[in-house]
Design a protein around this nucleic acid. Structure first.
Lengths: 150, 150
DNA sequence: CGCAAAATGTAGCCTTGGCTTCAACATGGC
DNA sequence: GCCATGTTGAAGCCAAGGCTACATTTTGCG
């Protein structure tokens, strides 16, 4: 790597293409992340995660939620039996924890930067999916936290 | 507005739904933004924006780029005549300027927070589409710039 | 208990944004 | 002037993520 610095005017098609590809794939996983995060939240706070609750919280129809849940199951992040609630696999739980931690850090950084709380919460919902490990580490350093030693 | 603060554990379906809806719509416009930004860049630096160049820079097939350009035209952001390059409408140019400015601010904030340059450029590509006006203003304040008085 | 309402699941449709394949056009080299 | 090559455009396929409409199952109330 390490081409010639940042954004040459019109020459570096490859580097730019890679950046866009990364952003596209982050967009693709964002949905899964949202579902997993929300399911974890529901399980934690109410003990069960029902499709209609998920749908309502996400602002989509229940059918959409159910299709997404099917995809989660396909990807090994969740499991459920018909008419019973949805649960997370170990992998799903790990992802949820990761996503939730990331969300909190992003919100905290936005707050530290002077963004109003409601707006921070709003924007973080979109931003968090595009924050790489390196950036997350920088955020935590900036917040004066030690990198969470797990 | 102004419900009870931020993120009640499991009760505020509506507020959360709104946040997700906003994130979803930002995701939807992200593509258009990328194209418009890139077209402006190409026009500026090389005088013309050809579909194949656009495709290569974004890392997609030319057919995909052409379909996206058709959508830009439908939305009144660009115009083009067959086999001639693509150009931006006034609206498209305004959007491009806005997007580009936003991109720069996001990158600068990331750099100021200690994110390595290549990573900052990478992450900004995804983050910029989710930064609201309010957050952008906070970013500029943080960077010690006066808010551009339009 | 039995039935109605609510939750859940299924099917089918639409749009977006990827892709490949093929046809049409433009251009440059000979 | 003509053909090869490369760009452009069109068509058709696929998966994802929305939706509505309909079928099924659970649940709980009378």
């Amino acid at each position: 790597m390490a081409d010639d610095k940042v954004a040459a005017p019109a020459g570096d098609a490859t580097g730019e293409a890679a950046r866009h590809a990364t952003a596209r794939s982050a967009r693709a996983s964002a949905l899964l992340h949202d579902y997993v995060e929300l399911i974890a939240d529901l399980l934690e706070s109410t003990g069960e995660a029902r499709p209609t609750d998920i749908a309502r919280r996400l602002g989509v129809s229940h059918a959409t939620a159910i299709k997404a849940i099917a995809r989660l199951k396909r990807e090994g992040l969740a499991h459920s039996k018909p008419y019973r609630g949805v649960f997370l696999t170990a992998e799903g739980q790990a992802l949820a924890a990761e996503v939730k931690a990331r969300h909190r850090v992003v919100v905290d950084v936005l707050l530290a930067l002077g963004v109003p709380p409601e707006v921070a919460e709003m924007d973080a919902e979109g931003i968090e999916h595009h924050v790489s490990e390196a950036t997350l580490a920088a955020f935590e350093r900036f917040l004066g936290r030690a990198r969470t030693p797990d």
